[in-house]
Computed example of a mutant assay.
Amino acid sequence: MFEQQLEEVVVEVDIASISTAESPRSSGEDPEHIQALAETEVTLPPIIVHRSTMRVVDGAHRLRAAELRGDEKIKVKFFDGSRADAFVLAVGSNITHGLPLSMTDRKSAAARIIVSHPQWSDRMIASVSGISAGTVAEIRRRTSAEETASGSRIGQDGRVRPINSAAGRELASRLITANPGLSLRQIARAAGISPETARDVRNRMSRGEDPLPKARGAAKAGGRRTEALSRSTAGAATAEVVPMTDRLAAVHRLTSDPALRFNETGRRLLRLLNVNMLSAEEWQEIIANVPPHCSSIVASLARECAGMWDEIAVRVDLQLA
């Protein structure tokens, strides 16, 4: 999340110059965990230290273990962000590895992040603090941060979306009506809403309902709903799941096509298509071996790649129209 503010260079720093204040762990360090780290023969990763305050962001137990061994220096990576961002990084680091934070500490951390980063969405804060988005929403309601937040929030994907999605839902419904073939990601991007909200709008329209939930859209005219539904269903194309053998055969046919084989752009397309022709078992093996600390990044990149392929499909179809 704050990779650009985390220095990759590892340096040795005097242990005496480093502080462990402002830890998200209310119970302090665990003596047994410190002892286990001090006795391990495995080389431990460098700790992360906030440069401007010299406070530990990640690695308090490793620091204490080094002290227990009698070391005077420890390997460090410096973080150059704000104190608020340093706390967020500390919480996130203690969720993904090491000795996990207690549920009480996670909720306390979420409450602090809500105040320091009120523009972040509930899901964004939940992904950092290791609790559910619903719990974050409940904590937010009990704080005054809601009053200071703007009319939009930043989601996990880095995009800014309005807190009140009524306008976005209205725009999404118009986009679906005008072009039923658009992907959910394309609709979401254009309307400034999440893909899940776009999905909800599309599902509501397919059932003949208003794109807005009842509390906000009960007074909308029924004629517009009927018109939107009829136009949507009239032009919508049903996506079919193509069997693996058929996909492989299709790619093989393309590979034999001189129009693609004998130019660099065509060969690049064929390479991209071949990379995606893994079987379900092969994909499952890859998924099962994604390290937990990489999961959110891999998932985000996978969604972005899926969105790009969706856009390619739409644009290729438009060339044929």
Rank of each mutant, 00 (worst) to 15 (best):
R142T: 13
S300D: 07
R261T: 12
G28F: 08
S116C: 06
N263C: 06
E311R: 04
G307I: 05
D200K: 05
A188F: 04
R69F: 07
P258I: 11
I15V: 13
R315F: 03
E138N: 09
I187T: 13
I15H: 00
P31R: 05
W283V: 10
V298M: 11
S127Q: 03
E146Q: 12
D157H: 08
L272P: 02
D157V: 09
F262Y: 13
P211L: 03
S230W: 06
T177L: 04
S121W: 02
I131N: 00
M54E: 13
T265I: 04
K107P: 01
R315I: 05
A84F: 10
D30I: 03
L171T: 13
C294Y: 13
A84M: 11
I312V: 12
E209T: 05
A178Y: 04
S82D: 10
E209G: 06
E138F: 00
N274V: 02
D257K: 01
G307P: 00
A237N: 07
E282A: 15
D80S: 15
L254F: 12
A166L: 05
G130W: 04
T245G: 07
I34P: 00
G92V: 00
E72D: 12
T143S: 14
S173N: 05
P118D: 14
H293G: 02
I287E: 12
I163Y: 06
T265Y: 03
S232G: 04
K73N: 14
S102R: 07
E304F: 06
I154E: 14
S23V: 10
R141L: 11
L37G: 01
F2T: 07
G181W: 01
L171R: 14
E196A: 13
H50W: 12
A36E: 12
A145G: 09
L318W: 04
R112P: 01
A21S: 06
K75P: 02
R64M: 13
V136Y: 02
E227Q: 14
S232M: 10
R202E: 01
R159G: 02
D80A: 15
A188V: 15
G155P: 01
K73Q: 15
I34C: 03
H50Q: 14
I131P: 00
R207T: 11
E41T: 14
V49M: 10
F2S: 06
V316M: 11
R267K: 08
Q119A: 10
E32M: 04
L182N: 03
S17F: 08
I114W: 01
T148Y: 10
S82V: 10
D71C: 10
T197S: 10
S127K: 03
I287N: 12
V91Y: 00
D14H: 10
P162Y: 10
R142Q: 13
E146P: 01
N289Y: 11
S152M: 05
I95A: 02
G192H: 05
H61E: 08
M1S: 13
L171Y: 10
V49I: 14
R25K: 08
G70S: 13
S173M: 04
R261M: 10
V314N: 06
G168H: 01
F87Q: 05
A86R: 06
G168V: 08
M54P: 01
K107L: 15
R224W: 05
S230F: 07
T104W: 07
Q4H: 08
L101C: 02
L175W: 01
E32L: 07
T53N: 15
G130H: 03
H50I: 09
H33F: 12
R261I: 07
I312F: 09
R64A: 15
A280V: 04
A137G: 08
E285D: 13
R123V: 02
A145C: 09
R123E: 09
